[in-house]
Design a protein around this nucleic acid. Structure first.
Lengths: 191, 191
DNA sequence: GCTGTTTAATAACAAATGTTATTGTTACCG
DNA sequence: CGGTAACAATAACATTTGTTATTAAACAGC
């Protein structure tokens, strides 16, 4: 599982082995909550098989904010970093095989590498990348119609549309399931 | 101008003086473009007096994404960091007194401090903070009605509503000027 | 395989928001 | 100053999207 990530991290083998030995594996059924909105995140996850989603409660409704698939690391980044209550719940969509690591282990290892510029750069790049993703997602909410956003999703992440239930996709696109259904039938008619 | 920021940076005096000596001052009239959408950002700005906004073109319409006021640093972060074309235009709203620094000077000074963990942490914190702001802004677009977003803005940044023209506020809230006008008149009626 | 539950499609209607046009007001520039 | 352009408010109308209810299909647990 971890071998395929080995070359991404400029660590010596001892540190790398220390790092991966901190991971625990778990098999969770669908709809398992891994982190609850309002709790402080103490774990980071890595998905071997399955998928997760981050969602938040909006006036009683469940709004999906992000999806995660195989080989992605998952954390409520703002909560993990700033030790504040998470804005989102993290939950499995499919039955999933997930590795997790304690924040204290991450902190310990990062702490021992404070003066390792290459790793810091990598980390900063990752944060920027995520920020950039958020920006683009936000921009698309303003620039595009729900139809355009759905077409984008079909184009950019076709497997997502296959694997994820409709209602999560609808809330991810910022619309109701009824409206998504209308969009789909409109597309089907014009085909 | 720079003295009030001195204590924020854990730099020795020489480095600090090197840093601030790289800044140039300029006085710009309202509506001056400091960075154009599509260009790669090569400057970072610090506002002494006045205000700027970041906006992007959406099907011919001008959508404001962010406002900046006195003592804030301004850059198209993703463009500045990743050397990619900026997603936004940065433009003055009021006549403004602005300091600016070349990216190459920022890079040089940061480069010479690669192994300075305290500064790296500060930088990472700042990036996280901005990412967090984007998240919250995004969440509010989904959770709140335009009326609620306007009330939030009135509460959180009353001075912004005073200083910024209506149409920029409307696009920042994700609505048309007509709709913002309706919201205002509804609020006035209910008072 | 049956049965209850969850999910998706659809229709009818309601609400929110956008569009265009008009008008009065304000701000800028010669 | 005076004239022109930019801006904000408002109204009438159009469009988009949400809400609720109904039904059929898919799925989950026995």
């Amino acid at each position: 599982m971890f071998d395929q990530h080995r070359n991404k991290f400029p660590l010596d083998d001892d540190t790398w082995n220390d790092y991966i030995s901190c991971f625990h594996v778990m098999q969770v059924p669908a709809k398992t909550v891994l982190l609850k909105e309002g709790e402080v995140s103490k774990k980071m996850f890595l998905i071997e098989k399955g998928c997760l989603r981050a969602w938040f409660n909006s006036n009683g409704k469940d709004i999906t904010f992000q999806f995660f698939f195989e080989n992605e690391t998952v954390a409520s980044v703002e909560s993990f970093r700033k030790k504040i209550p998470s804005l989102v719940t993290i939950q499995s969509v499919e039955p999933s095989l997930v590795w997790w690591i304690h924040k204290r282990d991450v902190d310990r290892i990062i702490g021992s590498l404070k003066t390792f510029p290459a790793l810091q750069d990598l980390f900063i790049d990752a944060v920027f990348e995520r920020m950039f993703e958020y920006m683009k997602h936000f921009f698309s909410f303003i620039k595009d119609t729900p139809l355009q956003r759905y077409l984008n999703l079909l184009k950019e992440k076709p497997q997502l549309v296959q694997r994820i239930p409709q209602r999560y996709i609808a809330s991810y696109l910022g619309i109701t399931t009824v409206h998504l259904s209308r969009i789909k039938s409109k597309l089907a008619r014009n085909k």
